[in-house]
Each structure stands twice: as structure tokens, then as C-alpha cells.
Design a protein around this nucleic acid. Structure first.
Lengths: 244, 244
DNA sequence: GATGATTTGTACGTATGTATA
DNA sequence: ATATACATACGTACAAATCAT
């Protein structure tokens, strides 16, 4: 992954509208957010402005602006006159984020059950079927990808874009703690079974059941993380890196 | 309200730790967010960087950073190479925000019913009583102030800080559309009655009832806005200012 | 549609505050 | 505790894009 953002001399501008003309700050924000949620940047890591600027061959100005936006979205922690750090929520806050995600996803599933169009319901079923196949193929990366599509399909089905955005933002903030989930092959099939209850309820247009099934699903994701983090003691260890 | 942020020469630094040393960008963000939610800055207004910089006697750099953060929080709309505008959601998005607020507030009330400490329940009752008195005194500004305290008390009662932050953020984004609410004196008493159902359910530790009562309350706030906006045709008119 | 005026985006230098020896 | 080193905060100059004519 060579990281040169600076595209010296735009080449091959065949079709117009290919580039929405993003600013460097925007590209940096997207790139850094991706690095954080993918776990490429470790939690609690120091994000040096000059260093980051050199890394991407830009000045510090767009880097600063990207950091500020990431701070506003909660992915990094920035205090005045102090270096920006990749956010590392303590266990209380992490629990709060998981719980909130469960509530948000539950509301989404409930609304989707009431509002999805025929086409949207069919699309959801197709994605669900893809996941079933993948749960046997056992490719964690691919399963994760389609799993996101599954949840996105439900957000769209709510016909409430704002709610979808809030939910996605929360998902992103929790993602670093869900990453290892699908390493466990057994988890793929369990996830599949949980999804099945959600899909079934949505197709029945049963709001309460869809909501409850999704809530249960996210709670299990949370539990899965806790048992993983607890077993590896990663949470404890990470917690003592700076505070101890 | 003279607007000089520049405090030339810090004076009287008696006790240490009085000033958390906010940056200019932070102060600007807070100030501008306040101006927006209070309706001081009209929806859709253009926020010129240089102009704003001159207004506060600072350079464009902190202004830009403040704009970026406001954009991340959704209060302003910023596209690359275009002036930043005070966000003016269309009716579909506004409905989505109201609906989401109702769901979030409902979840908060439900969790609070289960989790509030004795002290927190008592505090909630006291605030509720203050509102009852104010609903007769009929001071809209003061009622609004204590009303925010009422809802904040519930967020605290959830013991889920993240959820509280999301809910507050959503409340802020909708606030410009709730401003005129309490001009209507009758609304104060209706609001009071709705709150009563919420408080009662919370004190009974009845999660479902608290959640439902709060949901109904916010829905009525939404309806109140719609009938107001509809009657003044403000929504329609504003909608045609730029798009037409 | 081209050109000038205006506004935003980026780079960089200096000031200021923080952390370390 | 003072001084030094270092990172961030801010101002200014210039480049690039948009808007108005």
C-alpha cells in the first residue's frame, strides 16, 4: 500500500464527473477513518500531524482538518495542544456503544419490517442467501463485506436516512471491536441463524419480532466480543498501556 | 453582544485550571453552533470564511476548522470549493430527524425507568415540578431552559453516555424547528401533561410505558411544528428560496 | 462561453503551549 | 524547578476553483 495522495498531474480524464473533486482533507479523513476501523491503526496510537503530513506528502493544514473531522465523528480523541490519538474507549463506554448499537439496529429492523418495498424485501433475501453460502465457504473477509450489505439493506428499508446514518456511524465506531468476530468459523453459522429470525420477521411485517430478533443478534455480537477480549486479556492489557 | 473572541492579555488568573485553554476553533464552533440552534443565523445562510474571520477578529484558519467540525455534526452543509451553508433539511429529512429523535428519546426514557437511582428519580421530579410552576408563569425562554434540563436528567438516568450524546446531538439539529413551540402558551400545559405520563412511568420503573409516553410526547412536538410551519407556509417558502 | 472577481484550498513560518531532562 | 525540545495553534501568502458578468 504505497500512500501517495498527491496525484501529480491528473491523467486520463475521459468521462466527466468521475472525480467529485474531493479536497485533500476529505481524502485524508476517508483514508484515516478506514485505517482506524480496519484496525490498521492501533487503538490509542498517536497521530502526529507532521509525520502524517510527510507520510501523505501534503502540508499539515489538510491533515489538521482531517483530524478535526475525525474527532467530531468520535474516531479519534483530540484535546487542545495535545496530540490526537486513535480513540480507545474504556469498557464502560464500549458497553454503552454496543448497547446503543443494539437499540438503533433494533429500531431499524422494526421500521424496515413495516416499510420495506417488495423489491427491498427481495433484495434482503438475496443478500441473506449469499451469506448462507458464504457461511460454508468460510471466507471471513467476504462474509464481513456481505454482512455489511445485509445491515445496509435494512437501513435503506427504514426509509429514514438520518437514522441510517446514525446507525452506520455507531457501527463504524464499534467496528474495531468486532473485527475478530468472524475469525471464529462457528460464529458465521450462528450469525446466519440469528439473521434468519430477523429476515423472517421482516418478511412477516412483524415490527416487534424483527426489532427483538435484531436486538438479540447485536447483543450476541457484543457477548462474543467480550468473551474474546476477556480470554485474550486484550482489553485489560490495552487499558493499562497508558493509564497505568 | 459584542463579538470579540480575542482576549488581549489574560487578566486575573487567580485560581489555576479556570480556563481549559480552548482553542479559537473550539470557541468559534461553540459560538456558531449556538447561533444556529438559537436561530440567530437563519437556515440556509451563507457562512463566508473571510467575513466570519473578520467578525471575530481571527484568521481564516480557526474559522475553517470550526466550519469543518460543524459540518461533521450536521449543523452546516459544506461541499468542497463551495461556501458553507447553515443546514436547511428538506421536509423528508426533517421528518426523518423528528422520527429518529422520537425513537432515541423513547429508548432513553425506557432505560431510565429501569436504571435511575433514587436520587436521580427525585431530581427528575423536582425538575418536573419546576416546569409545572413555569407553565403558569408563562415565560417561554425559561420554560425552554428547564425543559432541556428535564430531558437531560433522563439521558443521565440511562447511564449510557453514548446514547445521551447521540440524542442531544439530534435534539440540537432539530432545535431550530422547535424554537417557536413554546410561544404558544397552550403548548406549555400540554407539554406538561405529556411529561407527567413519562415521569409517572419512570417512577413505576415501567420501561415500556415510559418509552411509549416519551415517544408520544416527541410525536406531538413534531405535529406541533408541522401545523405551525404549515400555517405560516414557512416551510414551503424556505423550500423554494434556493431550489426553485 | 470566456474572463475577471471572489472564495475556498494548501503551504509554510512563527507563536504558544506541553512534555521531558 | 528551570530550561530545552517538540508538537500544536494561528496567521499570512499563494494556488486553484467557483461564481458573476
Amino acid at each position: 500500500m504505497t500512500s501517495h495522495l498527491r496525484n501529480s498531474g491528473s491523467h486520463i480524464a475521459l468521462s466527466p464527473r468521475v472525480e467529485p473533486k474531493l479536497t485533500l482533507a476529505d481524502e485524508l479523513r476517508i483514508r484515516l477513518a478506514d485505517d482506524i476501523v480496519r484496525g490498521f491503526l492501533p487503538l490509542g496510537a498517536t497521530l502526529d500531524e507532521s509525520q502524517t503530513a510527510r507520510r501523505f506528502q501534503v502540508s499539515r493544514t489538510p491533515v489538521r482538518e482531517a483530524f478535526r473531522e475525525l474527532a467530531a465523528s468520535g474516531l479519534v480523541d483530540a484535546k487542545p495542544h495535545r496530540s490526537t490519538l486513535v480513540a480507545r474507549p474504556d469498557s464502560e463506554r464500549l458497553n454503552a456503544m454496543f448497547e446503543t448499537m443494539a437499540e438503533l439496529e433494533a429500531v431499524c429492523a422494526g421500521l424496515a419490517a413495516q416499510r420495506m418495498t417488495v423489491a427491498e424485501r427481495q433484495s434482503l433475501q438475496e443478500i441473506h442467501e449469499q451469506l448462507r453460502v458464504l457461511s460454508f465457504a468460510g471466507n471471513p473477509e467476504q462474509f464481513h463485506e456481505i454482512n455489511e450489505q445485509f445491515h445496509n439493506a435494512i437501513y435503506i428499508g427504514t426509509h429514514n436516512n438520518y437514522l441510517g446514518e446514525l446507525t452506520i456511524a455507531t457501527r463504524k465506531r464499534v467496528q474495531p471491536f468486532r473485527r475478530a468476530q468472524f475469525r471464529n468459523l462457528g460464529r458465521l453459522h450462528k450469525s446466519q441463524a440469528e439473521h434468519h429470525h430477523v429476515v423472517e420477521a421482516i418478511l412477516r411485517e412483524d415490527r416487534a419480532a424483527a426489532s427483538a430478533a435484531m436486538h438479540a443478534h447485536i447483543d450476541l455480537v457484543h457477548n462474543e466480543y467480550e468473551s474474546y477480549a476477556g480470554s485474550t486479556l486484550e482489553g485489560e492489557m490495552a487499558g493499562r498501556l497508558r493509564t497505568g
